[in-house]
Design a protein around this nucleic acid. Structure first.
Lengths: 113, 113
DNA sequence: GTAACCTGCAACCGGACGGTTGCGGACATC
DNA sequence: GATGTCCGCAACCGTCCGGTTGCAGGTTAC
């Protein structure tokens, strides 16, 4: 009796967003793209830790790598966030269908890209 | 240079939603409230494991316990989901402000409850 | 060419987390 | 009141995950 349809593409997104450091990184990158060393400079963790987090975010489809010579620049690609919103809309749908309509709007916009 | 405001109330929600079992449970409960033993019967894990997951969800404010005699019934309280949507709207805002408006709509509805 | 800097890979470590089992207590039923 | 069933607590275990360190490979600059 699965209430929400099949397997969720939102899983990787939620897993990626579960870590506070990762959310922080996404937040920073949403303001302006940056390299791993730049990001590590603003955080109390090593560059390698940042790289691992960026790999997680990238695996969820939330980041885009762009190499320019010596360094690699990361930027946000927030499309997968719609999967997460969609899932929540389905769960919250029973409770309030306004979320449903919101989700529909997102889907429509997504198709428009 | 924090791009997203202060500390996030969305953290617990994302952490709760990071686990597939927890998402499954939320999904089931959104369809109809149930007890821990009922939920465990539909899953390949023990009742205690389910209880722990329900505790996580409850800690994120996503569940409500309702005791009736011998057994405890859980139901979904999806309001905290708006925190998660709000956070994503801020991150994705740079990319598309339609999410922002969606978030505003949610906030308005939240105030209306 | 050599020095400085950034990326990438691999090994390693400790703690958190998902899961199990066992047991005691409370409630309903007979 | 005895029994079955459900909840709740606690201990325990293995694995995954976040983090570190060390080192090799490119790339830019001097």
């Amino acid at each position: 009796m699965a209430a929400v349809s099949g397997n969720d593409p939102a899983g990787p997104v939620f897993e990626a967003l579960a870590d506070p450091v990762r959310r922080r990184l996404l937040s920073e990158l949403s303001a302006s793209p940056a390299t791993a060393t730049e990001l590590a400079a603003e955080l109390p963790i090593s560059r390698q830790a940042v790289v691992k987090h960026l790999a997680s975010l990238s695996q969820a489809g939330l980041l885009e790598r762009e190499r320019s010579g010596r360094d690699v620049r990361y930027r946000v690609t927030p499309e997968p966030l719609t999967h997460a919103v969609g899932w929540m809309a389905q769960v919250g749908g029973q409770w309030d269908e306004r979320l449903e309509r919101l989700h529909d709007a997102l889907r429509a916009q997504d198709a428009g890209l």
